[in-house]
Write a protein that binds this DNA or RNA. Structure first.
Lengths: 245, 245
DNA sequence: CAGGGGCTTCACAGGCAGTTCACACGTGGT
DNA sequence: ACCACGTGTGAACTGCCTGTGAAGCCCCTG
């Protein structure tokens, strides 16, 4: 069981302080991947592998937000959520193994600020962490515009929704991640390995050409012709990019 | 007239040099992935697939840091660590297959500067490489160069795009690599073998004159006259260079 | 447990890019 | 000025890269 704490910058008595995120999961790999992403986004990260460790970590120093797995040794995520919210008014994002659990949790009025179901992409988690922090203290969190526009296409990270000329386009999780990743830096070229990592969290396993398949499906849905693309351009021998030539 | 925007560099006797990382692993894919990420962060990367090759590579030219797999044909990573640290005072990051091995290794006081356990994310590795280099020589490591300017030509690595006086010039992958490689050290002369390696990743197969063909095509696209070049100059009997005379 | 959706992998086809060759031209040395 | 050798160049050839449809697999759903 591992817990991670992450932070984004915040102004405190005139001093710039990184936001701290506590990540709690017993899967070391998940913790590692999330840590890397959160750190690269400017958060400070602390980790815990089980319930009691998480409690100790929060008691020692209150993080700005906690990411809790539900299945946890010692004390489970639900109990932790109750305790942290009551005692520390801590924003919480719960991680569940099954989608259906979310409904049950909401029914139980657990009161977490957001939920993420596995499998999730690191990008998605980071986006939600930022969203919750933004919502909670309404402040300026650098980066992460909630929506990006490329031509008449609009990518809304918070709602996880893409519209073209106002029309909603239904995308799968992977397709959205692919598009959102590339659109976060329009014009920048992304290699297949980078995209594979952004989509699956691991660049080492998996077939690079899988990305091609997703790009194909994505293009079909957004009505993009590979020969004359408006949105997703292929960069021969390198990868793909979105937007400006 | 040469202008450099940003880059991962260090001043050495007045000369700008990229940091060099030696990646040693017998898994070709891992080497490939790590190389890609490290290069995209502005590092020069050399690779070796076994112990003896690594020794030869370091003897030939000392890298700034080495990334060693523990399980290695010929000479294992632990022995390499001892040798490199004793003989070259080389910063080392060890890669292990099992987390538990790390504790054992620390117990053995191998003296590596850091450890990474598989599976790891490429980002994590890059972060640790930077951290170790920062720790070792105290200097801040800036982010990867986003663009280099030579006269009115701008080479944007992130977008993989070249503009001259604001006009975009369409280049193939090889042409871009060629130009970007030479432009990373304006004024420095590159031999055909060096360029062949930079472009194909392998200097030992291929015809040197192939570079000439690419230079020809490149010059045509950027509007450079071989007799009176503004950007890519021929160094008779040696190779090519970009920029200042 | 049958159905469906989504992710991955595979095989094939077409096209673009890389390589090579041969010859013309320029360079530098004698 | 001549010669030898390195370089510029256009065209043909080869090979790699990408786009694509289809099949397999896994997980979730009803």
């Amino acid at each position: 069981m591992v817990g991670i704490i992450v932070t984004l910058r915040r102004l405190e008595a005139g001093v710039v302080v990184n936001r701290t995120v506590l990540v709690v999961d017993d899967n070391a790999k998940i913790v590692e991947v999330l840590s890397a992403y959160l750190k690269s986004e400017g958060f400070d990260v602390r980790t815990a592998a089980d319930g009691p460790s998480a409690v100790a970590s929060v008691a020692e120093q209150r993080p700005d937000i906690a990411l809790l797995d539900i299945m946890l040794p010692g004390i489970d995520g639900i109990e932790l959520t109750r305790r942290f919210q009551r005692e520390h008014d801590l924003p919480i994002i719960l991680v569940t193994a099954k989608t259906e659990e979310i409904d049950r949790l909401i029914g139980l009025e657990i009161g977490a600020d957001d939920y993420v179901s596995k499998p999730f992409s690191p990008r998605e988690v980071v986006a939600r962490v930022k969203a919750v922090l933004r919502r909670v203290d309404g402040s300026h969190i650098p980066d992460a515009p909630s929506a990006i526009e490329v031509g008449d296409m609009r990518i809304d990270n918070e709602r996880r929704e893409v519209t073209i000329a106002g029309e909603v386009v239904e995308l799968t999780r992977t397709e959205f991640e692919l598009l959102a990743t590339m659109a976060s830096h329009p014009g920048r070229v992304y290699g297949r390995l980078q995209l594979l990592e952004a989509v699956s969290g691991d660049a080492f396993e998996g077939y690079e050409r899988t990305i091609d398949a997703h790009v194909k499906n994505l293009r079909k849905k957004i009505g993009d012709d590979p020969r004359n693309p408006r949105y997703v351009r292929t960069v021969f021998g390198v990868g793909y990019k979105v937007g400006t030539d």
